[in-house]
Design a protein around this nucleic acid. Structure first.
Length: 834
DNA sequence: GGTTCCCGCATTTTT
DNA sequence: TGCGGGAACC
């Protein structure tokens, strides 16, 4: 077992074989003492308090490798939980790399939700569902809520469905069923919140569906009401690991505590200082209470930071120390010196964007006294997404390439959701929500009236909308053009469904395929082993059978079936005929969707794991600066980071403070902490004196967080003209209100603070541009044929050397020219903490 | 049944 | 200021 999957390429096969024998635990190499302790303390509850950039993923994956290598647990006895699919995938990859290729995929490594689905499918009956239940996304949820609200005769204007959805989500996060909502909250939503909640849950059961919150809540309910079932899982999961523990909500906490109660081998990794999801139910309290919840817990602190320079770290630490009720950590680094955190004020938001654009280009050219940094290495992190606009506008004007992370996710887009609804109908024709969504998309002449007829018919007969529609057509209730089109629609669904049903399906993927064991029955249940629990996606594989002969479609695999569905539905044509500018993009997205299907064995598996396609970070050839929110940046790092908009009300956000008071403010501060600690080498904080808010000019005060930055780690860059009588032209043309605003700003404590701070150097003069040194040392470390690693492009071989650049053929990203200093030799790659 | 117009509203986001 | 949703209008 080697920690390098490509070791032969640079180490020599015979050597590595010998080395393996001599070093039984290569995954321990290079760990610092704290990390090592975190890896080797296997039994009992452990809280790994891992500060930003301290290599926690490394410790976590090494811990799993250690568990497996020592034979403490088999791969299926380790439960490893993350929040995002991305994190789960990365963990799988890294454990695989540590253990070598021999390790089979770990069936219980995944998100809270995906693991819950797996458990829930087995015991669905225990909460009144069938095991082939569908999972609703937010959109379906809202549509359902609307129906519920309408049915209750409540004015939807005063009581919007969104709000109800949010409320119910919140309750679910706190693990409250309709009956458990405390009376203090009962007045919510026009005094009928809990009634609507109950109605919603009832409706979900009739639809054989559940929402995201239910996935966890149902599992908790099952565990609480069926000790036999719980006991089985407790036995299986000998070791439990949890990533980002500070983000867990009450439901997740209960879920974990129930599962860990037997073996008590639970290792939670997190950082209370990076808890930024309180607004969606995360309880910092979970991590603060850990030692009480799990008596005898060992707390291990990872405090050596491998990411940022001294100044950046000190500035962040100083800031976060203003928060009360922390577990407390002292981050330190061996990296000395570096640039101080830079602070700059601007006249308005546009100037701020202009300045950052120029600065990014300067840094790219290497005229800022540091080694040049590609735009790929630079990021602008904002509090709220509307702040991105100013940057996009500016960058489009000057032609600075940028990429925006976030925004509407791939699978949330209209066309993707429509297509998914078609697929859902093909897989389960009784999916009423999907039916509703696309019955008249593209237009089939089925308006409100026709749809009501279908609904009424379905209700009367107690059948699905599809069956209701079928009857409405045959009985002549819906005739004419619409009727004919509806008939065709129904027939299409029948045919698609048939095409799918005739194909072999993996075991466990639906009720009809479920094993003969009745989940919940003691006897049968105890007979099951963890291994019997096959993943529906990587379990039974169709292999050669993926091409099947079918009447009407032959041969046909699920990818082609998907294309056929969209074509036959007229959906593709709908966008082809659409002349709006976004139509081509939508067709592109559909193509991408179909392409994403290729990596699945069938449509069912795809629908189950649809969320996987959302991170379709296509490797861009062109280098771009990244713009994203602070929330989205958690877990990432960039050599150069810009943090604009540090103004009171914007950051910290007024709304946060209004709604959650001190708690809200502290969470904002943690967000600021997360922002600063994303930076490796250069961090620039900025604010503007004036900003357009909803079209209105507003004068802004510098953020209180700026005050909290320790002065000796901050360098104030003075904006041009600050001393020399205002902002010149800008001030002259800005109009009376703006001049008044400026006066305000000048008199504000913030500006005074700023002026006091800018004691030493008026940095408006760009610092002396040092010569761009071509780092020949970096180049000379490599020769052609070397196996190397790049943080972004992964592994590759050196193909040539040109100046300070290397031509590298990357395994995945293709051949690229990269600055040598961005490259490490592949054997050093594992020492990079992520 | 489809289009257009107007009003209200406006963080952060994963599953 | 700009977007989305609902209502009114064609």
């Amino acid at each position: 077992m080697s920690s390098f999957d490509d070791s032969d390429a640079f180490e020599g096969a015979s050597l590595s074989a010998r080395a393996m024998a001599a070093r039984p635990a290569p995954y321990l190499d290079g760990l610092n003492p704290a990390q090592r302790q975190a890896v080797e303390t296997l039994d009992g509850p452990v809280l790994m308090l891992a500060g930003a950039g301290t290599g926690k993923t490394r410790a976590l994956t090494a811990r799993i490798a250690h568990l497996l290598a020592r034979g403490q647990a088999r791969t299926n006895e380790v439960l490893a939980v993350t929040f995002t699919n991305k994190a789960a995938r990365e963990m799988k990859e890294r454990v695989g790399r540590l253990m070598g290729q021999t390790v089979e995929g770990m069936p219980w490594m995944g998100t809270f939700h995906s693991i819950s689905v797996k458990i829930l499918r087995r015991h669905a009956e225990l909460v009144g569902l069938k095991s082939n239940f569908t999972i609703l996304d937010t959109d379906d949820q809202i549509r359902l809520m609307k129906q519920i609200i309408a049915a209750a005769n409540i004015d939807e204007k005063r009581w919007p469905a969104r709000q109800l959805a949010g409320l119910i989500d919140n309750w679910k996060n706190r693990a409250w069923g309709p009956e458990q909502v405390p009376s203090a909250e009962a007045s919510a939503f026009n005094n009928v919140g809990t009634e609507l909640y109950a109605a919603y849950q009832a409706r979900l059961l009739t639809l054989n569906a559940c929402d995201f919150g239910d996935l966890l809540l149902h599992v908790v309910t099952i565990f609480q009401n069926h000790p036999d079932v719980l006991e089985q899982y407790q036995r299986w999961f000998r070791y439990i690991l949890v990533d980002e523990y500070q983000d867990t909500n009450v439901a997740q906490y209960l879920w974990l505590r129930l599962l860990a109660a037997k073996h008590k081998n639970i290792c939670c990794v997190g950082d209370d200082d990076q808890s930024i999801y309180g607004w969606r139910g995360a309880e910092v309290g979970n991590i603060l209470r850990f030692e009480k919840d799990f008596p005898g817990a060992q707390v291990i602190r990872l405090e050596q930071n491998y990411r940022s320079t001294e100044h950046i770290l000190a500035a962040a630490s100083g800031l976060i120390s203003a928060n009360a009720g922390r577990l407390g950590k002292t981050l330190w680094t061996e990296a000395e010196g570096g640039e101080k955190v830079r602070l700059i004020g601007h006249w308005d938001g546009e100037e701020e964007a202009r300045w950052i654009g120029e600065e990014a280009e300067a840094i790219q050219r290497g005229t800022r006294g540091m080694e040049p940094h590609s735009l790929d290495d630079q990021a602008i992190l904002v509090r709220a997404s509307h702040q991105m606009r100013a940057f996009e506008d500016r960058f489009l004007t000057i032609g600075l390439p940028y990429r925006v992370i976030g925004g509407p996710r791939f699978y949330e887009r209209l066309e993707i959701r429509d297509a998914m609804a078609y697929f859902r109908l093909a897989v389960s024709p009784d999916d009423d929500l999907a039916f509703e969504r696309v019955v008249n998309t593209p237009k089939r002449g089925l308006g409100e009236k026709a749809q009501q007829t279908i609904q009424r018919q379905a209700r009367e007969d107690g059948v699905s909308l599809l069956e209701g529609a079928r009857y409405a057509v045959t009985s002549g209730q819906i005739g004419g053009k619409g009727g004919a089109q509806l008939r065709a629609f129904v027939e299409n669904i029948d045919r698609w469904h048939q095409a799918i049903s005739q194909r072999p399906r993996p075991a466990f993927s639906s009720a009809t395929d479920a094993p003969s064991i009745i989940p919940g029955s003691d006897e049968a249940w105890t007979a099951l082993e963890p291994d019997d629990f096959v993943d529906s996606d990587d379990g039974a594989v169709l292999e050669d059978e993926s091409l099947v002969n079918l009447g009407g479609y032959s041969p046909l695999n699920h990818v082609r079936l998907a294309e056929t569905i969209l074509d036959e539905a007229g959906y593709t044509a709908m966008w082809q005929n659409d002349k709006t500018p976004e139509a081509p993009g939508r067709l592109e997205n559909l193509k991408e969707l179909v392409k994403a299907l290729e990596s699945f064995d069938n449509l069912q598996g795809f629908l189950e794991h649809v969320s996987l396609i959302m991170d379709n970070d296509s490797e861009d050839a062109e280098e771009k600066i990244t713009i994203m929110t602070l929330h989205a940046a958690k877990g990432l790092e960039f050599p150069v980071v810009f943090l604009p908009g540090w103004e009171d009300g914007l950051f910290p956000s007024q709304r946060s403070m209004d709604e959650s008071g001190l708690r809200g403010l502290e969470e904002e501060r943690r967000l600021a902490y997360v922002g600063i600690t994303r930076a490796e080498e250069l961090c620039t904080i900025s604010f503007a004196g004036n900003r357009r808010v909803y079209g209105q000019w507003q004068s802004q005060l510098p953020s209180r967080f700026i005050d909290e930055l320790p002065a000796k780690h901050v360098e104030v860059l003075t904006p041009p003209g600050l001393y020399g009588g205002g902002y010149g032209a800008a001030g002259m043309t800005a109009g009376i209100e703006d001049r008044a605003a400026r006066a305000d700003v000048y008199n504000s404590p913030g500006w005074k603070r700023l002026q006091e701070r800018s004691q030493t150097r008026p940095v408006s003069q760009p610092r002396e541009a040092r010569n761009v040194v071509i780092d020949l040392d970096a180049v000379s470390a490599f020769t052609e044929g070397d196996r190397v690693f790049h943080q972004k492009f992964g592994y590759g071989f050196v193909e040539g050397i040109e100046g300070d650049k290397l031509e590298v053929a990357f395994d995945k990203a293709g051949t690229k020219h990269v600055v040598a200093s961005f490259i490490v030799s592949a054997d050093a790659a594992d020492d990079i903490p992520f």
